[in-house]
């Protein structure tokens, strides 16, 4: 009985692990473009937080302007690079895209 049960379990496991119907595909490797879009979202979120904290009265106008312009510069640099990569030919994008 025990032997039969163990055999059945083994067969079920082997069937599950090795029976792979259909085509399989791993996702693409992460590109620099994808990374930059993530960074853009992070900087935008920082900007949203900054605006909100300023409206909540946590810091004065001068501090706000200084931090805002610094974040905007960071965002602009990211946007500029995204735009450059999006304009670049596929071959260049692919070459730069892999394993950054």
């Amino acid at each position: 009985m025990t032997l039969l049960l163990c055999s059945l379990i083994t067969l079920a496991v082997l069937f599950y692990v090795f029976y792979l119907p259909g085509k399989l595909q791993l996702g693409p490797e992460k590109t620099r473009l994808a990374y930059l879009r993530e960074r853009k979202e992070a900087v935008y979120e920082n900007l949203r937080d900054l605006n909100f904290e300023y409206r909540a009265g946590k810091f004065p106008e001068s501090d706000y302007q200084s931090m805002k312009s610094s974040l905007e510069e960071e965002a602009a640099a990211i946007l500029a690079e995204i735009a450059r990569l999006e304009r670049a030919p596929e071959a260049v994008r692919g070459r730069k895209g892999v394993r950054i």
Binding site: L36, N51, E73, E74, A77
Partner: peptide, 21 residues
């Protein structure tokens, strides 16, 4: 969802952004 809209940053010519590598 956040309700506060963030104005788009000014586009400038800039150095590439550092990214791990």
């Amino acid at each position: 969802a956040a309700a506060v809209r963030v104005p788009a940053p000014v586009r400038v010519q800039a150095e590439p952004v550092g990214a791990g590598d």
